[in-house]
Simulated assay, not measured.
Amino acid sequence: MLAQNGIPTAEDLARVRPTAARLAQGPVAVTECFQNIPCDPCYHSCKRQAIKPFADINDRPQVDHDQCNGCGMCLMRCPGLAIFVIDQTYSETEALVKLPYEFLPLPAAGEVVDAVNRAGKVMGEARVEKVQSGAKLDGTSVVWLSVPKDLSMEVRHFKIREVR
């Protein structure tokens, strides 16, 4: 499936998903990098060594979810925009999804957007909680979305409802 349409299969996602017990402990990085390419900035950015050393630069990143504190340094350094931070402890009903974003205009905190899945299908509404941007982020902004908890492992992008 991934090779034909760019959308990972349920099996692909199961291999990178943190356990339910780990998700219940707080923010954690999820690497949805499914291609063997020469890339390892995520490994070098992780001060906690939660991203395991690569045997070969073409390896895909492997996260030790128990070591990860969800700081997002790897997310900001991933040139493939393939890392997300999920916090299912955000509230009783909502999770926080931090995702890389390289488009303009940037959304504003408080704005309601359409949350979309990996295939671009609208899954529901999300609220922009925070937008991080600046020179330290190398041109990649990080948008924090609050989404219904049951969508936290599905929502991977969003659509701004109206262009300002």
Rank of each mutant, 00 (worst) to 15 (best):
L106D: 10
K98Y: 00
E102S: 10
V142G: 08
V147L: 11
P100H: 07
V142D: 07
E94F: 01
V143H: 12
G110N: 07
S146C: 10
D114W: 08
W144H: 15
K136L: 13
N117L: 04
V143N: 10
Y101C: 00
S141F: 10
T93E: 14
S133L: 11
E92A: 15
T93Q: 14
A119L: 01
R127T: 15
E102W: 00
V131M: 06
M123L: 15
V143W: 10
Y101M: 01
A135H: 11
E102T: 14
E129K: 13
E92S: 13
T140E: 10
Y101V: 05
E125M: 02
V112N: 03
G110A: 05
A126Q: 03
Q132C: 07
Y101D: 08
V143Q: 09
A109D: 00
A108W: 00
G139E: 12
D138A: 15
T93V: 05
A119Y: 01
K121S: 11
Y101T: 04
G110R: 02
V128H: 05
V128E: 05
A95S: 15
A108G: 02
S146R: 14
M123A: 15
R127K: 15
Y90E: 13
A95W: 01
L137E: 07
K98F: 00
S91T: 14
V131Q: 06
V142N: 09
V113P: 06
E125W: 00
R118N: 07
E102H: 04
V97F: 01
A119D: 11
A95F: 03
A109M: 03
A95K: 01
S133A: 14
T93R: 11
L96H: 03
L96S: 04
A108V: 03
D138P: 00
A115Q: 08
S146P: 05
A135I: 14
R127P: 00
E92V: 06
V122L: 01
K98W: 00
S141D: 09
E94N: 12
R127I: 13
T89C: 10
K130V: 13
V131N: 03
V143L: 10
A108S: 12
T140Q: 15
K130H: 13
D114K: 11
E129L: 15
K121T: 14
A115R: 06
S133W: 12
